[in-house]
Design a protein around this nucleic acid. Structure first.
Lengths: 110, 110
DNA sequence: GCGGGATATGCCGCTGGCCGACCTATGCTG
DNA sequence: CAGCATAGGTCGGCCAGCGGCATATCCCGC
């Protein structure tokens, strides 16, 4: 696995599923919440991402239920999904740390 | 400024210019080095990114010179560029920390 | 002296994730 | 009954990055 770049919306979807399985709309709310209102996923982005993650085996369907006449499709992070997310966290952390180090090497308005 | 997502190659270009001005090929080497050989920028990606960053005012031309008959175009991070990179670092750090927190809430193979 | 890699810059066509807009449907609240 | 939250989805287009290619010089090994 070459760990190619993962875009932010996709990363946040995996992140939202890291602690518990959720349904699509639940992921949307969770992402909005955990990004302090910064990232509002479009349904096109959300469902396309979930389809892609399902196809890649990073996420699996975790049952369906109907609440108040509305269908809910649940999704859960798989083990490969956890590994992938962990790898992404390491990449982001390393990138951020290195950039921060470089910024400190030459402070603003030197 | 809404700080929309910045892709990894672009982020690494800004990062490579954070400590000192460099020319295109120098940025390429620096990115390769600081990513431990993981990210080898294509010239199409590199020069397109530099053009875009110039147009956005995040990077400025910092002189040209000819060494061994080869032209070098130097680029430097501007103040807005520093601010933007700093904001990106904050975003990456926050995303990584939040994902990490969630992964720990439900450890692997629970 | 000749092929190949490093140095250095650049163009062109395509792909794929995301965005914007839109659609269907139910339940709750003002 | 209008409007919003909830819940799922489609479709067209944009654009950063990728892969391939072009150009040119310098240096090293054979």
């Amino acid at each position: 696995m070459v760990t190619e770049e993962m875009r932010e919306p996709t990363f946040l979807v995996l992140s939202a599923l890291a602690d518990a399985p959720r349904h699509g709309y639940g992921v949307m709310r969770e992402v909005l919440d955990m990004s302090d209102g910064r990232v509002r996923l479009r349904t096109s982005t959300l469902y396309a991402a979930l389809e892609r993650l399902l196809a890649d085996g990073l996420v699996a369907e975790a049952g369906r239920e109907t609440v108040d006449g509305r269908l809910r499709r649940y999704y859960a992070l798989t083990d490969p999904g956890r590994e992938r997310l962990t790898a992404e966290v390491a990449r982001l952390t390393a990138n951020a740390a290195e950039a921060d180090r470089r910024l400190r090497l030459r402070p603003a308005t030197a």
